[in-house]
Nucleic acid binder design. Structure first.
Lengths: 222, 222
DNA sequence: GTCTATACTTAGATAGAC
DNA sequence: GTCTATCTAAGTATAGAC
């Protein structure tokens, strides 16, 4: 029932360790409460209670409610896009199995990790309303987005895609589609069946291989 | 400076007309303030002031802040998806010009109508957190989504797309991609250049014509 | 039908006890 | 390092004047 029995093989926690643990628990609780109530709707009292601490403990670890939120925004932005990139890497052979696994990932995120999409929406809204953190958000995207871009890049070259198709553009499209479909599934699950994301990816990559974008580049001259 | 000079050829407003006008102005102001501050962050005082009225006038027209928000959610949900469908209808010939016009629409929505995406996000968050309005949101989507579906359906049959590709599925993908790219452009405009949406649509429809989704349907038997 | 003044509630943040 | 008590500000909603 006490803290010592919960720790696996560790002695009593040092002061620094205890504080770090409190911080971590507060951040976890904050992610849940912010996702469910929104940034302004969430109260520091509710966050502190959800973590099992008092308001005072929260303010002893974070300067303000906003600072707590910004720490989440900067640190815990582990985009599910990174997982998508890993899923693609696991299936270098054909696009069929990769597409199926990405479909499963989308369904899992939408249906199981119910706090994910609302928290992302809160981050996005905060960034749009507070332009000073726009860079932070863009920076957070960079790593997972780059991973996705790399996987897509090798896939494009292997399938002899037209040279004018940039992996960055495709990665942006895939990520946007992922986020859009996750949201739509929360509104109307029937409209986003399990295989839809995989089907869309197959359509997309087949179309890219066929070289559909090239003709548009010469439109200006006509 | 007074109300009479503003009205074109109309006499003094009747009581009912004046009240309807007040309601309309309050709804307009509410849309702006909710988009900029969020549902919980917006105060009825700020909404009333933005409309040029007092708090009392607001409560004389709406039962509560929530009722005002819900009226916006139900009535002013004129999705930009409907415009996308119209843009597609204007170019029945080839996909090239239609794709270009949809690209322009996306850029216009993202860059000019800066309140649109945040307000949609607020609606979505509210619906996710208050499941009793999920049906309302789904119902709001139906009309514009159906229009988009019809345009896509005729386009699919004209181009001899595989019969197992449903227009509903494609419409969902197009709408999700639209929303996702609009949001991404607000975070990092450079990552969503003007032609990206059009390129993605060309890839998508080329891939569909090629019949890329068919093989996945027989996976179960293998 | 709209405005002014106000009652009531909640939430963010701080200070001092332990 | 965390908790209890409290101060202060802000916001929803109402009641009665005009």
């Amino acid at each position: 029932m006490n803290a010592e029995s919960a720790a696996p093989a560790r002695r009593r926690l040092s002061r620094a360790e205890a504080k770090a643990r409190t911080r971590s628990l507060l951040l976890d609780a904050a992610a849940r409460v912010f996702a469910r109530k929104g940034f302004t709707g969430a109260s520091v009292e509710e966050i502190a209670e959800a973590a099992g601490f008092s308001i005072g403990a929260l303010y002893s670890n974070f300067g303000s409610k906003e600072a707590l939120f910004l720490e989440l925004l900067a640190d815990r932005h582990t985009d599910r896009i990174a997982e998508a990139a890993q899923a693609l890497e696991r299936h270098p052979s054909g696009t069929g199995e990769a597409a199926a696994e990405l479909s499963r990932l989308l369904i899992a995120v939408a249906d199981k990790d119910t706090d994910f999409a609302p928290l992302q929406a809160e981050f996005w809204l905060y960034a749009v309303r507070n332009p000073e953190v726009l860079d932070t958000m863009a920076a957070n995207q960079r790593a997972p987005r780059h991973a996705l871009e790399q996987v897509i890049s090798t896939s494009l070259t292997r399938h002899d895609a037209p040279a004018d198709v940039s992996a960055e553009a495709v990665a942006t499209v895939v990520a946007a589609l992922f986020g859009g479909l996750v949201r739509q599934r929360r509104i109307d699950p029937a409209s986003v069946p399990e295989e839809l994301f995989g089907d869309a990816l197959r359509w997309l990559f087949t179309g890219i291989r066929t070289g559909a974008a090239a003709p548009s580049d010469t439109d200006d001259t006509a």
